[in-house]
Design a protein around this nucleic acid. Structure first.
Length: 478
RNA sequence: GGCGGGAUAGCCAAGUGGUAAGGCACGGCUCUGCAAAAGCUGCAUCGUCGGUUCGAUUCCGACUCUCGCCUCCA
């Protein structure tokens, strides 16, 4: 089934077709590294990962680029306050970001360019805009993009949303007299040096200064993916002004369409409310890990709802995610055991055929769901139905025939190449716990159930759940 | 003020012009020394009011509530 995605440019779900055969260029607006990323940020990055994985699942050869914004007002302010250097300050948060991204099961982008390492490209792009007459240097020394001039060349400003510039409440959040722009809608391409910038400054044809916010994404995406590329995504708040301005700068400079498909992920609420530090519902991944949840559980929860709907992230939901994943893990781990042991259950052609059918139905329905504008909820439903069907095929000894298990495992691996939750962290069982369980097994063998139950309680108190198996036991970490 | 989303069971969340997926939680049963896991099973008429239709949760209108964006916030 063809992949359909909702394109913000057309406000409709369209069949996705790349510009060049099977090759897809995908750019995702990355983090501004001034602090640890919060759960809302992570929703967007996990969404981007889902897009990439779905493209790869659909047979595309994806080049995934995600910028690192490492120069910006808040960063400069903190560098000054903490009396550190830009590189040292941003490096810390960049490393933390990439570690967390990995922990969340996101495939590493192929390129993660830093804004500060693309100053020449940024300057070149601004020069092009100045030469084309859509950018100007104002009295304050900064260079601005002129929406009016841009529109004057027949270009369309407001592609991602309907804009009514006259009705917009200009300057509510940033004092309009802070800049000396010709028009309120104009935005900075190059910001002239001010003493507060300290060492954070570069030479340019317009004097010392630093790049504006939007220009880095245009410069780096064009460099990495070309003047026109397939996919650009980010959080919904970036539609305006960030992405709209990226389009204006890029198309203003190249005269070519910038991006074919724009995808935007919705925000999330936490416990039904907008996330804020004062409400105490502002979580970083590290906060959640400290509460005893795993990054994998966070990924599952973030992937439980459709990307264009506001999602309500709750700690209860995270507890539920733990249970839901345990259900999948249980099934997959039984499949692994069966796949590795030949002959414990005799092959059965009819049963094999049934399981093969269940697997191909799952793959078919899963593909339908995920390619339908990433209907992840429907995709999970398919997976859980398959889990139930598969569970029915295990014998009393928790095994199924080797061939049926192998078929099932390979089907699971295919859907998990999109979901990315398959890899459970290996758990190490302490010697003490293991020997207690062995003692308990002996007691059980002697039908001393009182002792066996006491040991089970003891293990539980130590954080381990021991489950009896036909031939022994296994552990779960609580 | 402008623009754009939402309102589906205790919670999270899909979906469809013909009487509602899935997950979590909860109850019953089977299995089990007891558990756990697993299976079976129970649990909603889809914000309110109108309209279109043989029939609407799904289409249209109004209303209520709610969320987001409107210059550097994913």
């Amino acid at each position: 089934m063809a992949l359909k995605l909702f394109n913000t440019l057309t406000r409709s779900a369209q069949e996705f077709t790349p510009l060049h055969g099977k090759k897809v260029g995908m750019y995702c607006c990355g983090p501004t590294v001034y602090d640890f990323a919060h759960i809302g940020n992570w929703r967007t990055f996990v969404f981007a990962d889902l897009v990439r994985r779905t493209l790869e699942f659909s047979g595309y050869d994806v080049t995934h680029v995600m910028n690192i914004t490492d120069v910006e007002d808040k960063i400069i302010k903190r560098v000054r306050e903490q009396k550190t250097t830009l590189r040292e300050f941003t490096g810390k948060f960049e490393t933390a970001f990439l570690d967390d991204l990995k922990a969340l099961g996101c495939r590493q982008p192929h390129q993660t360019p830093r804004a500060t390492e693309h100053i020449p490209e940024i300057i070149a792009l601004i020069e092009k805009l100045v030469a084309r007459g859509v950018a100007y240097q104002a009295a304050d020394g900064s260079v601005y993009f002129s929406i009016e001039k841009y529109r004057g060349c027949g270009c369309h400003y407001g592609q991602l949303l309907k804009l009514n510039l006259d009705e917009m409440r200009a300057g509510e959040r940033v004092a309009s007299d802070e800049y000396e722009k010709e028009s309120i809608a104009d935005f900075a391409l190059w910001k002239a040096f001010v003493p507060e910038d300290g060492d954070v400054t570069w030479d340019s044809p317009w004097g010392k200064g630093r790049p504006g916010w939007h220009i880095e994404c245009s410069a780096m995406s064009i460099k990495a993916l070309g003047e026109t590329f397939d996919l650009h995504l980010g959080g919904e708040d970036l539609k305006f002004p960030h992405h709209e301005d990226e389009i204006a700068q890029s198309e203003g400079a190249t005269g070519k369409p910038f991006v074919k498909f724009w995808l935007h992920g919705a925000h999330l609420l936490v416990e039904g409310k907008k996330m804020s530090k004062s409400l105490g519902n502002y979580f970083t991944l590290r906060d959640l890990v400290a509460k005893g949840f795993t990054a994998r559980e966070v990924r599952y929860l973030l992937l439980s709802a459709h990307y264009r709907e506001t999602f309500n992230f709750t700690l209860d939901g995270l507890t539920g995610a733990k249970s839901a994943l345990a259900r999948i893990d249980e099934c997959v781990s039984k499949l692994r055991q069966s796949a590795n042991i030949v002959g414990i259950v005799q092959p059965d052609q009819i049963k094999l055929q049934e399981q093969q059918n269940a697997c191909s139905n799952m793959l078919h329905d899963f593909t339908d769901a995920i390619t339908n504008d990433l209907n992840i909820s429907a995709a999970w439903a398919v997976v859980f139905e398959w889990v139930r069907e598969t569970n029915k095929r295990f014998k009393k000894n928790n095994h199924m025939a080797n061939d049926a298990a192998s078929v099932s495992l390979s089907a699971w691996e295919k859907v998990d190449s999109v979901l990315g939750v398959g890899k459970q962290a290996d758990i190490e069982i302490p010697e003490e716990i293991l020997s207690l369980a062995k003692t308990r097994l002996e007691a059980k063998g002697n039908r001393d159930f009182k002792k066996a139950d006491a040991i089970r309680d003891e293990l539980k108190a130590k954080g381990w759940l021991v489950e009896d198996m036909p031939l022994g036991f296994k552990f779960k970490k609580l």
